[in-house]
């Protein structure tokens, strides 16, 4: 963990505007999600008297078709989306980095086999595989948030593996790796102590950008009714439930859509900003 901190030491985030804006947006959404119980009301409480009520001082975002407070549902939705997206990103990063590092470091047949597997994954549209997998998991294990996580991780690790493989290919020719071999270190030692800490910068950038993408994927699955199941509030699913009332009560779709856009925007800006900072540092080195 402290290696990650070491990488960020000396970075002055406020100097980079992209980073500054992105970080504010991301922090804003994270804070909203974390303090949801303090800010919002009960997102499950229905009140048919307030069905499809428009935004007011009592219900900032209005109410949905069951009279639930939309503001609360959107904010609790931020919780779901962020937790699931970050979990997926973390799992994919672990799996992808390990596979990519092994592939790049050992080369030869291992690299060929992993390379072809990656090619196969890249040749199929991700969302199609995700939809199919969620369906399969649902019939076997019943509906659960883990279905979505596993299905997305299944296609998502590939980008981490590709990036890590590339970095490792260039790192393993560096002299300090040679030096480490000369002192008799094992391959696993070299991989975990020397190669992965050096590869962390670009991987962190990728992970940040990736969280934005995953939020979109989760929302897409939710919109199709395959994601996180109601009544748990989730942005894509809120969009779906509002689509029949788009002419009469547009706020049901507008506010979840706004939050999806805002969070993806925030993570992308943060990622781009981090890339600027880390790449510049690499060139400087």
């Amino acid at each position: 963990m402290f290696k990650v901190i070491e990488i960020f030491r000396g970075i002055e985030i406020p100097k980079n505007n992209l980073c500054r804006i992105g970080l504010s947006v991301v922090l804003f959404i994270i804070l909203l999600g974390s303090f949801a119980p303090l800010i919002a009301k009960d997102p499950y409480e229905t009140n048919m008297a307030k069905r499809l009520e428009s935004p007011s001082s009592e219900h900032f975002f209005g109410a949905d078709q069951l009279g639930r407070d939309l503001f609360s549902r959107v904010i609790y939705g931020a919780r779901t989306s962020l937790i699931v997206a970050i979990t997926i990103s973390a799992f994919s990063m672990g799996i992808g980095c390990l596979i990519g590092a092994v592939s790049g470091y050992f080369g030869g047949i291992i690299d060929d086999v992993i390379g072809r597997i990656i090619d196969v994954f890249l040749s199929i549209p991700e969302i199609v595989v995700n939809i199919a997998l969620v369906g399969v998991f649902c019939t076997i294990y019943g509906s659960s948030t883990w279905n979505v996580i596993l299905a997305v991780v299944f296609t998502n690790w590939v980008s981490y593996a590709r990036i890590t493989r590339g970095i490792v290919l260039s790192l393993k020719e560096r002299e300090f790796i040679f030096c480490s071999k000369a002192i008799g270190a094992k391959s696993s030692w070299i991989l975990f102590k020397h190669i992965i800490p050096n590869a962390l910068g670009p991987i962190i950038v990728l992970a940040t950008l990736n969280v934005g993408n995953i939020i979109l994927t989760i929302a897409s699955l939710g919109f199709l009714g395959l994601g996180i199941q109601p009544p748990t509030p989730e942005w894509g699913q809120l969009l779906n439930s509002g689509k029949n009332y788009i002419a009469t009560a547009p706020w049901i779709t507008f506010f979840p859509g706004l939050f999806i856009a805002l969070s993806v925007f925030g993570f992308n800006l943060l990622g781009e900003g981090l890339r600027d900072i880390l790449e510049r540092r690499r060139i400087y080195e």
Binding site: R174, F176, P197
Partner: peptide, 10 residues
């Protein structure tokens, strides 16, 4: 090359 034989992040 002492300059490049040490790992820069350790």
């Amino acid at each position: 090359n002492p300059a490049t034989s040490l790992n820069p992040v350790l």
